[in-house]
Lab assay of single mutants.
Amino acid sequence: WEITFERNGKRITVRTTDHRLLELFEKLWRNGADERELERLAEEINR
């Protein structure tokens, strides 16, 4: 799966075969987690 999240013109794409990681990322994104931390998390998930 691949999903791109966008907020205030900032886009972060997450790619993984584990839908649970996408759900976790989406919850953090929707709850306003720090964008720098989300970028780092996305990099780890995308590996």
Rank of each mutant, 00 (worst) to 15 (best):
E2N: 01
D34W: 15
A33Y: 08
D18A: 06
E35K: 03
R15A: 07
F25E: 00
T17S: 14
E37L: 15
W1D: 08
D34R: 02
R11Q: 14
E6Y: 06
R7L: 14
R7K: 14
G32V: 03
R7T: 12
D18H: 06
E6P: 02
H19L: 14
K10L: 14
E44A: 14
N46W: 05
F25P: 00
I45M: 07
W1M: 10
N31F: 03
L28F: 11
K10I: 14
E35D: 15
L22S: 02
D18R: 02
W1P: 08
L38A: 01
L24E: 13
E2I: 07
R47N: 14
N8A: 07
R11S: 13
K27V: 12
R7E: 04
R11C: 08
L22T: 02
E6H: 05
R40N: 12
E44I: 13
L21S: 05
R7H: 09
K10S: 09
L41C: 06
A33C: 12
F5G: 00
L41H: 03
F25I: 06
E26H: 05
T17A: 10
W1T: 06
I3F: 10
K27Q: 15
A33K: 03
T17H: 12
R47W: 05
E6M: 04
N31L: 05
K27A: 14
F5E: 00
E23I: 08
N8C: 04
E2W: 04
D18T: 04
F5H: 02
T4S: 11
K10Q: 11
R40Q: 12
I3C: 08
W1Q: 06
R15S: 09
L21M: 12
K27I: 14
E39D: 08
R15K: 13
E44K: 12
D18S: 09
R7N: 07
K27D: 15
R11P: 06
R7I: 15
F25M: 06
H19T: 12
N31A: 11
L41R: 02
R36G: 14
R36W: 14
R15H: 07
A42I: 10
E6F: 04
F5V: 15
I3V: 14
R47K: 14
L41W: 08
N31C: 09
R11G: 07
V14M: 04
E26C: 05
R7C: 10
L41E: 02
L38N: 00
K27N: 15
A42T: 03
N46R: 07
H19A: 13
E23V: 10
L22A: 08
L21I: 09
T4L: 08
I3D: 02
E37N: 04
E35I: 15
D34A: 10
E6A: 02
E44V: 14
R7D: 03
R15T: 11
E37D: 14
E39N: 07
E43A: 11
G32W: 05
H19C: 11
R36Q: 13
E35W: 15
N31P: 04
E26A: 06
E23K: 09
L21E: 04
N8W: 02
E23N: 06
I12M: 04
W1N: 07
F25Q: 00
R20H: 13
E23T: 08
N46A: 10
T4N: 08
G32A: 06
W29R: 04
K27C: 15
L38T: 01
D18L: 03
R30A: 15
R30I: 13
H19G: 09
E2M: 02
E26M: 11
E35N: 07
R20E: 13
E35S: 10
T13L: 06
D18N: 11
G32K: 06
R47Q: 13
R47D: 06
R20W: 10
T4H: 13
R15W: 03
I3K: 14
E26G: 02
K10T: 14
K27E: 15
N8E: 09
R36A: 15
E35Q: 10
E2V: 05
A42H: 03
L41M: 10
R30H: 15
H19N: 10
H19P: 13
E35R: 03
